[in-house]
Design a binder for these strands. Structure first.
Lengths: 126, 126
DNA sequence: TATACCGCTTTCCTAAAGTATACTGGTATC
DNA sequence: GATACCAGTATACTTTAGGAAAGCGGTATA
């Protein structure tokens, strides 16, 4: 039996393998921001207004303070959320999406759009 | 010290907590499709034409056959890639992005757009 | 017969992500 | 004094993702 002719194309010739992966880095960055078990829910929670720590935790069943704390820190580091401490008693800490954080919305919208179609497709198939 | 007035908004009033998480499901679906250490690279590799198993593996340094096999199966299950076996010797198996799989491109484009801005922002800050 | 290629699978292992549970310091309330 | 709330932290554990190495069935080639 004879061999089949194979397309040897890998990346377009003007891109080295390294350049290919380099182009993927920003995509991975964006993905990392949104991945993790609780990130989306937390971001969603904050899109409806500023929230206190306990308030977020209560809204999201199963979310432990450790995870919430960790995820909020990541959002802060990435300048997507801001933290405000008020000297009340008991102390009040509020989290809020930054204007920059709100730029995620269209992106999440796109994910939602594609995901919705995909859901229909996969569910319909079964 | 007095308490601060807190915004009691959680989800918009017409959405229950459950509906909120339901709206996130499609987003998670889309995210799951793209997350994992090798998915993007494999998809990218396939956007440049159909490829054989070993060919993909050679293109992506560090990718083990186990992982490649697993990821390709997931892509197949989700109808994003198709698998064609040819009765040559040694056997030839080709993978290809389906037309449906190609609908990921604009989505990945959006992730790339946001990720690029984010990269600039975070690197500039340091 | 020995070796090599293809397209995988199997087994075992490590590292990272996430969970459960308890606890802290500070203030207020019973 | 005991208890409760807030905003977390600390420690130990489990679960999942991914990696390393070997092997398999089939065919070809030296």
């Amino acid at each position: 039996m004879e061999m089949i002719e194979h397309d040897k194309r890998k990346c377009p010739s003007h891109l080295s393998g390294d350049e290919c992966t380099a182009r993927l880095l920003p995509v991975k960055d964006a993905l990392d921001i949104l991945s993790g078990k609780w990130k989306l829910q937390i971001i969603l929670s904050l899109t409806f207004g500023k929230k206190r720590f306990k308030q977020i935790q209560r809204e999201i069943p199963g979310l432990t303070p450790k995870m919430l704390s960790k995820e909020l820190k990541e959002l802060e580091i990435n300048e997507l959320a801001s933290r405000h401490v008020y000297d009340t008693s008991p102390v009040t800490v509020e989290y809020e999406l930054t204007p920059y954080g709100k730029t995620l919305r269209p992106l999440i919208g796109e994910l939602h759009k594609w995901g919705t179609k995909h859901r229909k497709r996969i569910i319909a198939r079964k």
